[in-house]
Design a protein around this nucleic acid. Structure first.
Lengths: 327, 327
DNA sequence: TCAAAAGTGTTATCCTTACACCCATGT
DNA sequence: ACATGGGTGTAAGGATAACACTTTTGA
């Protein structure tokens, strides 16, 4: 059996980062060139130079600091994408790029604070309007997504995907399911089905045009290359990870009220949480401790302020944020 | 902000696969050249040719089928490794290799069935003897690992790792913790701390020699490059994933008894499960259905045979195998 | 008849959910 | 005084863990 890399197929490795933060009640993502008129938003990305950097993460931190001015806290590798067609397919002689997606968290910079020119934080639900259930079930689901997906499924309802699920079942599971026990973490699957059905701008651009997109209009703001797929992966991973690792505190200031913590958790999860139980779960799980002082910023009763208890990491096997039930 | 890959740093992309199966009560992993005398075992790996294959997974399936003769079922990307030093560090002008690790599952081939020469299935606990708690707490933990790790921690007990945990705490959490509620899924962290402490052969080879390795002797069978790290990632992922996706059935025959299913679950988790509750959890969760016929292979009371119910995938949000308590 | 494996019943305990209610402040 | 947000008590329900026990076969 041949186990060594015998033949040489040089490619380039790019690192692409979904850099997330929260300001007020808005989850934000760092994008490049969103401002410059007609160009699509892009995630910051840069080449990996194996000679200069010992690991991917070191390389990533370096050019992000240089180019965007945003200091990264938590960093996590997401997935490596190598599909052809993620680059313009016109010329196959251009070097092939493999891109490694990263999730990074950073504390919200003040609105005025300067990022490198061309870089800006934008609300991530601008790219995924169907993911924000905080106010209500997003209107776009019933107005555009479900009608279009049902048409798409009807064209070949039983065709199975790689996992053996039929089109009909996938539509039901991802967008139709009892709208209660919805699976918040499947952000990627929901984006992918919209891509497959030709309902996002990226599908048109990649030559997967579908008449459906003209009826419904493209869904959400598009991004360059496959960056929206990376962002979907990042959101899903963050929604999942915060439940068993205390990553949310990378987005919080030193001290905060439980309401503020709840607002941030809701922003990331894209749904409202049950306030009373949220308090109790969080307090009971010992991930936070009272600072002793009070916040009287809200106009109601002053709230106790809390800080993250770093010690939980070595006390509990899954020291995440218990978020409890919805509503 | 510069978002395009401007400078060119060509590297090679290799795909490395941890191909797992179970035979009887042994979880096995496909290794290359394990037989040929003094050479270290290696995971099968091959180059990714971006021109020939549209996606990594297609490329992977192709050369695995060609070179090993093992048909892959479930395939999942694990992690992309790019540390310098994973290749021999002698000559920095040799092309840099980035390796994308994959987990793949395949049904156990009969012992006699032929794989490509040089390829063989070996018990994965040969590489991680401290991970198999089925018979008892592995003796190597108290005999070698804990004494050596305690010495290692004592040399600089409070030095924190990237996650803010001190050496002392890491040792306690990973190997010392009440030996009950042990975290089965942290296979990678346990391997990494042994590597850091210089207790595995790979550390010596990478120039991280430690006197500790001579006292205790190297732990587990070594693998080439960083393949044991990839295997650790694979085992951890599989142990975790089987709890919320029905991947274990990729390793089972069409029909099986609940005991047989329990044996396989135990083999993967590396611990004994509570038989009565395992039955009930599995039956209650509707991941299996009775075939109607009986198996009288064991010498005891004949057992009902079951098959996987594919429909669960669309019924339950986390259609994995409820494995319940230990013992 | 006994060992071995399969399979059932029942209870204690924990955790989550849901709902009702009280508290402290600014206006 | 009342609106607003902060904070507590408690009981119902569901799920798991632990334990005791019965059933069906082969040797």
């Amino acid at each position: 059996m041949n186990i060594s890399v015998s033949t040489h197929f040089p490619v380039e490795v790019g690192l692409t980062a979904a850099i997330a933060t929260v300001r007020g009640e808005d989850p934000l993502i760092l994008v490049a060139e969103a401002a410059r008129g007609d160009r699509e938003a892009a995630l910051p990305s840069g080449p990996f130079d194996p000679l200069a950097h010992r690991t991917f993460e070191i390389g990533l931190r370096e050019w992000v600091a240089e180019q965007t001015g945003a200091p990264l806290g938590y960093v996590e590798q997401l997935y490596t994408f190598g599909d052809r067609g993620r680059q313009a397919r016109a010329d196959d002689r251009e070097p092939h790029v493999v891109s490694i997606g990263y999730l990074a968290l950073t504390r919200a910079p003040a609105e005025t604070e300067d990022l490198a020119s061309g870089a800006a934080f934008r609300p991530w639900y601008a790219f995924f309007p169907w993911e924000d259930w905080r106010a209500a079930r997003p209107a776009v689901i019933d107005a555009k997504i479900l009608p279009a997906l049902r048409k798409w499924a009807a064209r070949d309802p039983d065709r199975p995907n790689a996992y053996g699920l039929s089109r009909r079942e996938r539509v039901r599971l991802l967008f139709d399911a009892d709208n209660n026990r919805r699976d918040d973490e499947n952000v990627l699957d929901r984006y992918q089905i919209l891509y497959e059905a030709g309902l996002v701008e990226e599908a048109r651009r990649d030559g997967r045009a579908s008449p459906l997109i003209d009826e419904a209009g493209p869904l959400g703001a598009p991004m360059r290359h496959d960056h929206r797929r990376i962002l979907a992966t990042a959101i899903g991973r963050l929604r999942s990870k915060m439940k068993y690792r205390p990553v949310i505190f990378e987005l919080m200031p030193e001290a905060f009220t439980l309401s503020k913590l709840q607002r941030v958790a809701e922003a990331l999860q894209g749904r409202r949480l049950h306030t009373q139980n949220f308090r109790r779960l969080v307090e009971a799980s010992a991930v936070v401790e009272a600072t002793g002082d009070m916040s009287r910023a809200t106009g109601g009763r002053p709230a106790a302020r809390f800080r993250f208890r770093r010690e939980v990491v070595q006390e509990r096997p899954a020291p995440g944020l218990r978020i409890g039930a919805r509503s």
